[in-house]
Amino acid sequence: MTTFKLIINGKTLKGEITIEAVDAAEAEKIFKQYANDNGIDGEWTYDDATKTDTVTE
């Protein structure tokens, strides 16, 4: 398992969460579901060097 981080730069929700996932694709799926569940819809970027997804509304 690898640690992945999501940075949220939303209009109403800001912060970050960290998860353990098998790979980047699994982490992205989990993060996008989390964002959807919390009403966050924005531009996504991924930095492989830091294993960090960022969503900005």
Rank of each mutant, 00 (worst) to 15 (best):
M1E: 06
M1Y: 10
M1S: 08
M1V: 09
M1H: 10
M1A: 05
M1K: 14
M1G: 05
M1P: 05
M1L: 14
M1I: 08
T2W: 13
T2A: 07
T2I: 13
T2R: 10
T2P: 08
T2H: 13
T2Y: 14
T2N: 07
T2L: 13
T3P: 02
T3I: 13
T3G: 02
T3Y: 11
T3C: 15
F4P: 01
F4K: 00
F4N: 02
F4Y: 12
F4H: 04
K5V: 12
K5H: 10
K5L: 08
K5S: 03
K5Q: 03
K5I: 13
K5T: 13
L6W: 11
I7G: 00
I7H: 04
I7E: 02
I7V: 12
I7A: 02
I8G: 00
I8N: 00
I8Y: 08
I8D: 01
I8P: 00
I8F: 12
I8K: 00
I8M: 03
N9G: 02
N9F: 12
N9V: 12
G10V: 11
G10K: 04
G10C: 15
G10N: 02
G10Q: 05
G10M: 13
K11Y: 10
K11H: 13
K11N: 14
K11V: 14
K11F: 13
T12W: 14
T12K: 10
T12N: 10
T12V: 12
T12L: 10
T12C: 15
L13C: 15
L13I: 14
L13R: 02
L13G: 10
L13K: 05
L13T: 08
K14T: 09
K14L: 09
K14Q: 12
K14N: 04
K14F: 09
G15D: 09
G15L: 15
G15P: 08
G15A: 15
E16A: 06
E16Y: 12
E16R: 03
E16H: 07
E16F: 13
E16N: 05
I17M: 07
I17E: 00
I17K: 00
I17T: 00
I17A: 00
I17P: 00
I17Q: 00
T18G: 01
T18A: 03
T18K: 04
T18N: 03
T18L: 11
T18E: 06
T18F: 12
T18V: 12
T18Q: 05
T18P: 00
I19V: 09
I19G: 00
I19K: 00
I19A: 01
I19F: 05
E20P: 01
E20M: 14
E20A: 06
E20F: 14
E20Y: 14
A21I: 04
A21K: 02
A21Y: 10
A21S: 02
A21C: 14
A21R: 02
A21D: 01
A21F: 07
A21L: 06
A21W: 12
V22T: 11
V22R: 13
V22Q: 11
V22Y: 12
V22D: 01
D23G: 03
D23F: 09
D23R: 01
D23T: 10
D23P: 00
D23S: 13
A24Y: 15
A24G: 06
A24E: 06
A24N: 06
A24V: 09
A24D: 01
A24L: 13
A24R: 15
A24F: 15
A24H: 15
A25W: 09
A25E: 13
A25M: 10
A25V: 10
A25F: 11
A25Y: 11
A25K: 10
A25S: 08
A25D: 09
A25I: 09
E26D: 08
E26W: 06
E26R: 04
E26L: 02
E26I: 04
E26M: 11
E26Q: 11
E26Y: 05
A27I: 03
A27E: 00
A27Y: 05
A27N: 02
A27G: 00
A27P: 00
A27V: 07
E28N: 13
E28L: 15
K29I: 09
K29A: 11
K29N: 03
K29R: 14
K29G: 04
K29W: 10
K29F: 06
I30V: 09
I30L: 09
I30M: 06
I30W: 13
I30H: 05
F31M: 07
F31E: 00
F31I: 05
F31S: 00
F31L: 04
F31H: 00
F31N: 00
F31Q: 00
K32F: 04
K32V: 05
K32M: 08
K32H: 09
K32P: 01
K32E: 01
Q33N: 06
Q33W: 05
Q33M: 07
Q33P: 01
Q33T: 06
Q33A: 10
Q33F: 03
Q33E: 07
Q33R: 10
Q33G: 04
Y34P: 01
Y34M: 08
Y34H: 03
Y34K: 00
Y34F: 12
Y34E: 02
Y34R: 00
A35R: 04
A35H: 03
A35L: 13
A35P: 01
A35E: 02
N36M: 14
N36C: 14
N36P: 01
N36A: 15
N36L: 15
N36I: 14
N36K: 15
N36R: 14
N36T: 14
N36E: 14
D37T: 06
D37E: 12
D37F: 08
D37P: 02
D37I: 10
D37Q: 10
N38Q: 11
N38P: 02
N38M: 15
N38L: 15
G39E: 04
G39T: 03
G39Q: 04
G39R: 04
G39Y: 06
G39A: 07
I40M: 03
I40D: 01
I40T: 02
I40P: 01
I40C: 11
I40W: 06
I40K: 01
I40S: 03
I40H: 02
I40L: 07
D41T: 13
D41K: 12
D41N: 13
G42A: 04
G42P: 03
G42V: 09
G42N: 03
G42W: 10
G42M: 05
G42T: 05
G42C: 14
E43N: 09
E43T: 12
E43S: 09
E43C: 14
E43W: 13
W44R: 02
W44G: 01
W44A: 01
W44F: 05
W44Y: 03
T45G: 04
T45F: 11
T45V: 09
T45Q: 07
T45H: 12
T45K: 06
T45W: 11
Y46C: 13
Y46W: 12
Y46I: 11
Y46L: 05
Y46T: 04
Y46P: 02
Y46E: 01
D47N: 08
D47R: 04
D47I: 12
D47A: 05
D47C: 14
D48F: 10
D48E: 13
D48I: 13
D48R: 06
D48W: 11
D48V: 13
D48T: 10
A49N: 09
A49K: 10
A49Q: 10
A49E: 13
A49L: 14
A49W: 07
T50R: 05
T50A: 06
T50Q: 05
T50C: 14
T50G: 07
T50V: 06
K51H: 12
K51C: 14
K51T: 04
K51E: 03
T52N: 03
T52V: 09
T52P: 03
T52D: 05
T52Y: 05
D53P: 08
D53R: 15
D53S: 15
D53K: 15
D53Q: 15
D53V: 15
T54R: 05
T54W: 07
T54I: 12
T54C: 13
T54M: 09
T54E: 07
V55Q: 05
V55A: 03
V55E: 05
V55C: 09
V55I: 12
V55L: 12
T56R: 05
T56A: 07
T56W: 06
T56K: 06
T56N: 07
T56G: 07
T56C: 11
T56Q: 06
E57R: 00
E57G: 06
E57C: 11
E57I: 13
E57T: 09
